[in-house]
Design a protein around this nucleic acid. Structure first.
Length: 196
DNA sequence: TGCCCGATTAACT
DNA sequence: GTTAATCGGGCAA
């Protein structure tokens, strides 16, 4: 049986947790799959929501690790983050793409489309597919509706610049499974490979 | 209070 | 490659 990830998994630097999440599986009410793309946001990072201190929106990032931080993006989409590090460090991993493995009919219905490759390939898309909304903000990741399991197989993780940001845009804090066809965008062939 | 812009997506040309 | 959709957060005034 796969090993469940508990809150202790997140009591480390976001830069350690983020690559470790590649290949893990996440389900929300039974729908979801394998994490193939994430990004790390540290509280000292100008691109992070927590960089300028606590606000009503980012309050969950300043709480304990192992909880979901969900925010509205561009006034339209939802984006899911997993809070890391000891309480107060305000760092989180943005989930950017999932390889769908379970609950495909429900995800297709919520997305209003059938193409498996586009179901969860993007932070806004995967929240729509898994039914994640602002109602999930602040919920613990080790209890329903969330289920999170550790990676079991050996894989290659690649790193590269994050997507859609203007500040600290050069930092290689985007991580993905090498060669996955479910990435929101391909990694450059010149990107660093982290062997695992 | 007003203004700018964003950790996006889909539908265009 | 370009752009509309759509709105809350953060900061200046």
């Amino acid at each position: 049986m796969p090993k469940r990830l508990t809150k202790s998994f997140f009591k480390r630097s976001v830069h350690e947790v983020a690559p470790d999440l590649i290949g893990a599986t996440l389900f929300v009410n039974g729908a979801g799959g394998r994490l193939v793309e994430v990004e790390a946001y540290h509280h000292t990072d100008p691109a992070a929501h927590s960089f300028r201190g606590p606000t009503e929106r980012n309050a969950v990032m300043f709480g304990p690790p192992g909880y979901a931080y969900v925010y509205r993006s561009y006034g339209i989409h939802w984006c899911l983050n997993l809070v890391c590090e000891p309480k107060g460090s305000a760092s989180a991993v943005l989930i950017r793409a999932i390889e769908p493995t379970a609950g495909l009919p429900a995800m297709r219905r919520r997305r209003g489309m059938a193409d498996e490759r586009l179901l969860c390939s993007g932070p806004g898309r995967l929240c729509e597919a898994l039914g994640i909304t602002g109602a999930h903000n602040g919920l613990p990741l080790d209890r329903p509706p969330f289920e999170l399991f550790a990676r079991e197989d050996e894989i290659e993780v690649v790193a590269g610049p994050r997507i859609g940001i203007t500040k600290a845009a050069e930092k290689p804090w985007r991580f993905g499974e090498k060669g996955s066809r479910f990435l929101s965008k391909p990694f450059s062939t010149a990107t660093t490979v982290i062997y695992r």
